[in-house]
Design a protein around this nucleic acid. Structure first.
Length: 335
DNA sequence: AATGGTATTTTGCCTGA
DNA sequence: TCAGGCGAAATACCATT
């Protein structure tokens, strides 16, 4: 149970040298603890205090496993990857502008004319019709918002897939590209349990909250994505980091959420509010001075809501373990 | 200064026309 | 598509510690 602020530099260097040197700093700037990569979220997180150090990690590694150095060279990173974020997945062909053939010789005038016509048609097919242009713009938007929010590439691609489905099912007519694009990205965020909230989306999106949420509900229903309400626990690390909470506090908060869910405290309530309340309640339990005010500011949840929820959370955890509760509560104890 | 309580307003969701 | 009902949350204000 010792909080591992005492890691021994010598030992680390001798044992895990090869693997770690090339990736750079591995100590938390805040508490000096070990940093761990959270691959699914693209975040680098301190294992001790929960501080999020880097939110949008890039994988520089090879695409496949390699078993010796020759193979490593061969397989490192090859060509342009296909990506769902280009409207044709980056697979289209361009016809060069030089009027040269494959050997570098100039073409005859007849051939030149032919190539010019081919270029024209190739261009026309490449961005063929409305839906292709539409897709191009939408995927650009998804990428822009995603990178503004630090959403990892994998989730952005998921968003691209969702958007593509919406397009294929003909859900676009009558709705804005922006709205559906924002909704697709949010759907991907929710599917991958990322901590971004609706409020976060509104900040980077070009559409207002109403249009965005309507679009989200719409595609959620029409595409049968079956995304339930977000789990409050998704927001915990983010919030804990915002208020500089300890790891212990974060764990305590997670426990509170879990027992709270067992007691059905959460149904119908805002998950963000519940997460905020859990942080505050955990602060009381582990004796860290967090005021309702600071938690409120960090989470955009009012102090009133924090009060209401954190009482319920504590009640659920103690009531569930069947302790105390001898308060003046009996039949006819009013006035 | 922080928390707890409450009345009032705002807001989003649902339902039924 | 709309109005109206409803619960949750925010807002404003005051009391208690």
């Amino acid at each position: 149970m010792t909080t591992l602020t005492t890691y021994d530099a010598d030992e680390r260097d001798s044992t895990v040298q090869e693997e770690e040197t090339e990736r750079g700093e591995h100590a938390c700037p805040d508490c000096g603890g070990n940093l761990t990569q959270d691959g699914t979220r693209g975040e680098t997180v301190c294992a001790d205090c929960g501080l999020v150090v880097d939110e949008d990690a890039i994988d520089h590694g090879p695409e496949w496993r390699a078993f010796d150095s020759a193979e490593r060279d061969q397989k490192s990173r090859v060509g342009a990857p296909t990506t769902k974020l280009m409207h044709d997945e980056g697979l289209s062909t361009n016809i060069g502008w030089q009027n040269k053939d494959a050997n570098g010789n100039s073409l005859s005038s007849r051939q030149r004319e032919k190539m010019q016509r081919l270029r024209t048609w190739n261009e026309r097919f490449r961005t063929r019709d409305h839906s292709e242009r539409n897709l191009k713009q939408a995927l650009g938007e998804i990428d822009r918002m995603g990178s503004a929010l630090g959403v990892p590439e994998s989730a952005r691609e998921t968003a691209g897939v969702v958007y593509r489905r919406a397009l294929d099912e003909g859900l676009l007519p009558g709705r804005s590209i922006e709205g559906i694009a924002t909704a697709s990205l949010y759907a991907a965020i929710r599917q991958t349990n990322l901590p971004q909230t609706i409020d976060d989306m509104v900040v980077v999106s070009r559409v207002d909250e109403q249009e965005f949420t309507r679009a989200y509900r719409y595609i959620n229903r029409e595409l049968a994505l079956e995304i339930g309400p977000p789990d409050p626990a998704n927001y915990l690390t983010k919030f804990a980091s915002k208020v500089d909470a300890s790891d212990e506090l974060a764990m305590q908060a997670r426990d509170l959420i879990e027992t709270g869910k067992d007691e059905n405290v959460h149904s119908g309530k805002s998950p963000v509010g519940l997460a905020a309340a859990a942080i505050y309640a955990a602060g009381l339990l582990v004796d860290e001075e967090l005021t309702q005010e600071t938690v409120s500011e960090a989470t955009d949840v009012s102090t009133v809501t924090i009060r209401d929820r954190y009482r319920e959370l504590l009640e659920a955890s103690t009531g569930g373990d069947a302790v105390e509760t001898n308060a003046p509560s009996g039949p006819g104890a009013s006035a």
